[in-house]
Design a protein around this nucleic acid. Structure first.
Lengths: 265, 265
DNA sequence: ACCTGAACACCGTTCAAGT
DNA sequence: ACCTGAACACCGTTCAAGT
């Protein structure tokens, strides 16, 4: 009762509609404003302050311009974030050949590398991206993430998983297993790294502090036992081990079901 | 330049500090306000309007109370969301025995069910929860999620994965593989379901519309081919297939590395 | 002990106006 | 064509005040 009915209108993606016209050419004002400059500043600000610290007004200040100027180039904050999301997606370096044969070099690309190596490379690039830009994780959930760079990535990912030899009907499931894992794992890793930066402690110090905080609480016994079973080392070493093992698991599972199961759809 | 330095203070979890005192017993006002009533209304509002539609002021209106009354029971909006998060975590029904032997019934619980069945049950409960409450996904990323119900869940999860027979040092990686996958998969599923509710279309209609929107864009050819290779059926049927296959993959991978690999840490 | 009202410092965005 | 300033409808939260 007394619901008030504020409408949250469902949004489509900027990539599925016409963009605000670029409208180059103009000699009048010494503006300096620019589509790419705005997106670059957005990424910089998001890296520095996080998603919660980002606002159109802060961005305008960063660009040394009034609060509303950026609205001439961009329709809404959501559109701008979608642009920043796709821009960041472009930072991954994908395995050669994952975009298909390059003209004149087809003879070099044929089965040049194992699909498992390529999968590991893409996974580790994806992980690196999500750790470097922790604000990406929530944005990927919020928007459709189908910008040009996202499409290049997703095409590469699909190629690699298809090269596993799995029947086409099973490719989406395998793909989801691998990349949803990487997404979740890296999201947590990125958040922990950001938090350690924010409080000015090393990740190992922060980890030790957290461990101390749950000392003596029986609900946490099981978790602590699990941590200790990882046999120490630094936080980073534990993470590398877990990530590698999980990926190995996924790959082994794909191979097992491909070779053993009644796989012909 | 002109950074403005708004400080985003790093938060700890409500579960690691003292809660606002319950302070029962009071006969004066016909208040009606209550910790559990507030959390229940919060969950209801989040279900109805989503995370973006939730605000302390809307919640107060729902409770037919002034905007600031709820602050007597709860310190900040973040704390309240953390409480709602853990309350929702309590909605999962975990496999019997996952909490350890029950006094007097130990003889029934020993190896009563296969770890694979239990893993599938927990995974599917986790998935159901994230689809029913799409606002949970971002909250799980934002807070530490170590409330009492979260701990029960996480303990159950760890037990089951440990029962796979994997050496302790490999349990965390396997655990991450399975549950990060379920998290990511279900987050997308939940968002799609919420979106379909918001625009008043069935999921199949929305899916068809999206397919139509990318018709003729060559960047999407690969994705569309992948979709079609899933051999139709409803959106729900495709999802069931993908989810089941991915989980089978993970389980097969765990068994393969347990039995085949040089697994003795 | 519990609830209210006014106020503060923020938001995203609209709109009329400037050059 | 590009940028500004004032304004609107929201936020979360503080604080002094009521009963």
């Amino acid at each position: 009762m007394a619901t008030g009915s504020r409408v949250i209108r469902p949004r489509t993606s900027i990539w599925l509609s016409e963009r605000k016209a670029p409208k180059r050419k103009a000699e009048q004002q010494p503006a300096g404003l620019d589509h790419v400059k705005i997106v670059a500043a957005t990424v910089r600000l998001l890296d520095a302050e996080g998603l919660a610290g980002f606002s159109m007004r802060r961005l305008a200040a960063e660009l040394e311009v009034t609060a509303m100027s950026v609205y001439w180039y961009v329709e809404t904050k959501d559109q701008l974030l979608e642009l920043a999301l796709d821009a960041a997606m472009g930072e991954m370096s994908l395995p050669a050949g994952s975009l298909g044969p390059v003209e004149g070099y087809e003879h070099l690309e044929t089965g040049a590398r194992d699909w498992r190596d390529q999968l590991r490379q893409i996974a580790s690039e994806y992980r690196r991206l999500l750790v470097v830009h922790p604000w990406l994780s929530p944005l990927m959930g919020e928007y459709m993430n189908i910008g040009p760079n996202a499409m290049v990535f997703s095409t590469a990912v699909q190629r690699v998983v298809r090269d596993s030899g799995l029947p086409a009907s099973q490719v989406p499931g395998a793909l989801a297993l691998v990349f949803q894992f990487v997404y979740g794992f890296s999201t947590i890793e990125g958040r922990f790294a950001a938090r350690s930066r924010a409080v000015g402690m090393s990740q190992d110090e922060l980890f030790a502090e957290t461990m101390a905080a749950i000392e003596g609480r029986p609900e946490f016994d099981e978790s602590r036992a699990l941590m200790e079973a990882r046999c120490g080392g630094t936080v980073q070493e534990m993470r590398e081990r877990d990530f590698t093992f999980a990926l190995d698991c996924a790959i082994a599972g794909i191979e097992a079901l491909r070779d053993g199961g009644d796989g012909e759809d």
